[in-house]
Amino acid sequence: MPSTSAHRLAGEVDVLAFDIFGTVVDWHGSIAREIAALHPQVDADAFALAWREGYRPAMARVMSGELGWTLIDDLHRMILDAILPRFGLGHLDEAARRQLNRAWHRLAPWPDVVEGLQRLKRRYTICTLSNGNLGLLTNMAKRAGLPWDCVLSAEVFRAYKPDPATYLGVAKVFDLPPQRVMLVAAHHDDLAGARACGLRTAYVEREIEFGARRPKDVSPQPGNDLHSRDLLDLADQLGC
């Protein structure tokens, strides 16, 4: 049963905004499966990790002004081109690279996600708040059956999380004070950024985000309003 504090919170929030990579979809497992199927000679686990490791440094180049505004699709392609030779795939032609880069549009949701979102949607407006671009997030939702009411992205605000423009942008879109919006994420730094802007926060445990061989510490941390095992548990806590 939901806790007393969660019942209280349930009436104080109107919008649930979701981080996507790692929180809603299994990026590591999805990328590794595609690589294993296409190039069985490659260490798929290492490839997925290497591709993702380039994500923050690439965004930092945009945030510092070294690069102009750049979509995540294009940053993913830059990272991909850089790592392919390391894995013996430097020979891939343009068509193969484009198709592989679109793997980020095909990420599979965690098993609890579709049902959890459907339950949460009955009571709340649910939207994405991802650094992924609009085309990526829309294609992903269409393929995976993710029932968003609205797709919001760093692309809308021309700022990457944890820029306050992203978190406050959700509240502005829905004409709400920040405390009526809750960020749902599996990353404490993302939640801290949202909390600093006045949003409510809910942590979701995704212990194997980086693969079963690298379990994450998913212990509760102070500051978050809610801590949940998965989206079904979150729905229970929010009375959905």
Rank of each mutant, 00 (worst) to 15 (best):
N224E: 11
E205G: 02
F210H: 11
Q221K: 03
R213I: 15
Y203R: 02
L199R: 00
I208M: 13
R200K: 15
H187P: 13
H227M: 07
P215N: 08
A212V: 14
R195M: 12
A202S: 12
L183N: 05
K216I: 06
R213H: 15
H187I: 12
V204F: 02
L191H: 01
A194H: 03
R206I: 12
A185T: 03
A202G: 10
T201K: 03
P220H: 01
M182I: 08
F210C: 11
E209C: 11
A185N: 09
G198Q: 09
S228R: 01
D189H: 09
R180A: 09
C197N: 07
E207V: 15
I208V: 14
G211W: 02
S228Y: 01
F210S: 09
H187M: 13
R213P: 12
R229M: 06
K216T: 02
E207L: 14
Q221S: 01
T201W: 08
H227F: 11
L199S: 00
V204S: 00
P222K: 02
D217E: 07
A212L: 14
D217R: 12
D217P: 00
E205I: 08
E207D: 06
F210Y: 15
I208Y: 11
P220F: 02
G198K: 05
H188V: 14
D189G: 06
E207R: 15
D190R: 01
V218K: 03
D190E: 15
L199M: 07
I208T: 11
D189E: 13
A192F: 10
K216S: 02
H227S: 04
N224Q: 09
E207H: 13
I208A: 11
T201Y: 09
A202W: 01
V218C: 11
A185V: 05
R195C: 07
R200F: 13
Y203D: 03
R206E: 01
E205T: 11
A202E: 04
A196R: 13
G198E: 04
G211C: 08
A192P: 07
P215R: 08
V204A: 04
H227I: 05
V181F: 13
D217Y: 08
G198W: 02
V184I: 15
Q221D: 00
V184H: 05
E209Q: 15
D189V: 11
K216D: 00
G193R: 01
A194D: 01
T201E: 08
G193H: 05
D225E: 14
V181W: 07
A196F: 13
L183Y: 12
R214C: 09
P222F: 05
S228V: 06
T201Q: 07
R195A: 06
S228A: 15
H227E: 08
F210E: 12
L191V: 09
D217Q: 07
V184M: 10
A202Y: 00
C197V: 10
G223F: 06
C197M: 12
